[in-house]
Design a protein around this nucleic acid. Structure first.
Lengths: 164, 164
DNA sequence: CAGCTGACTCTTGTTTCGCATAGCCAGGCA
DNA sequence: TGCCTGGCTATGCGAAACAAGAGTCAGCTG
């Protein structure tokens, strides 16, 4: 990673409240990530989340509430025959877009933290059967190693008033 | 995401101690991620980490120790003229490979959690200048949306004893 | 030698996360 | 009516993360 422009002098700035930090304040807890994992696997209902994540209903209620408040889940009423109305939890676009981060974490864990019998799950592309990974790529399709990444400050958009 | 084979019956299994969970137990704290962010930006020395992450030296000492113990950082002695020997912290391969997850988080934060003035940093490919993102792709190069992802259990490799 | 500095370490709160337990409340069922 | 069940809430507790401040220790400088 190469810092460009004013960023190059690392003594002159800090990355406080950067996007990584902000993201972690929403999905930085273990249970938040695991709830999103289960939602990606297709879980929708309270008891399913609680059982599969392996937490008590109190913790799960708190986490589901936080994630809906933050906009990653959407509550939808449902009604089993002979039961009262309850709520299901569905991923919003915001929640679904955590998937790359989740896959990147899984991949890293697969690679460095599984015992000798390797990754427990295999993730593939349904259409072609090839294994799926989270890759760092540029918009032109190159896979980008860390030493080819350039970081600079976004230009402040001060309503540029595009004169022709 | 589609669960295949025995996984399809979500009542019959739970994903406890999956790779996501394992990964979170190593890099699941806010400061661990931020230390890796700074290391990716090129930080090496104790006071630089402490200052830029914005934590006390006590917390930083604990975090650097944990990350070196876990194998994400490597301690290397250095000596400033007229100073005693001190240590620098460098990313190992294991640490560098967290980058995709870090970028995915940054990207997600950029998209959903920045104020109206948008992402603070622009990340590009040095060679071609195109923006860099963490994408979910298959080995054949297709970009894979979440509904085209298939998950199944890895075949247990029980020393298959390949008889010809 | 005394004093200083930088990298840690130790101690003492405070906050947050998660667990355990108990209680609430709507509706079905006896 | 009373009981049961399943989401959800409330309270109290232990563990961990982090802050704040003091202490340690090696080696340089005066």
């Amino acid at each position: 990673m190469h810092l460009e422009g004013r960023l190059a002098d690392r003594d002159s700035w800090t990355a406080d409240r950067c996007s990584v930090d902000r993201a972690l304040s929403v999905i930085g807890t273990r249970t938040a990530m695991l709830v999103l994992r289960e939602a990606a696997y297709g879980a929708h209902r309270f008891d399913e989340f609680a059982r599969r994540v392996g937490v008590t209903d109190a913790v799960m209620a708190a986490r589901l509430r936080q994630l809906t408040d933050d906009g990653l889940l959407r509550r939808e009423p449902y009604r089993e025959p002979g039961q009262r109305t309850r709520f299901e939890y569905h991923l919003t676009d915001m929640g679904r877009d955590v998937l790359p981060a989740l896959l990147a974490l899984m991949q890293w864990g697969d690679r460095y933290l599984t015992g000798e019998d390797g990754p427990p799950l295999r993730v593939t592309h349904m259409d072609c059967g090839a294994p799926v990974t989270a890759k760092v790529t540029c918009a032109r399709g190159h896979e980008v190693p860390s030493d080819e990444i350039s970081v600079r400050r976004s230009p402040r958009r001060v309503t540029p008033d595009a004169t022709p």
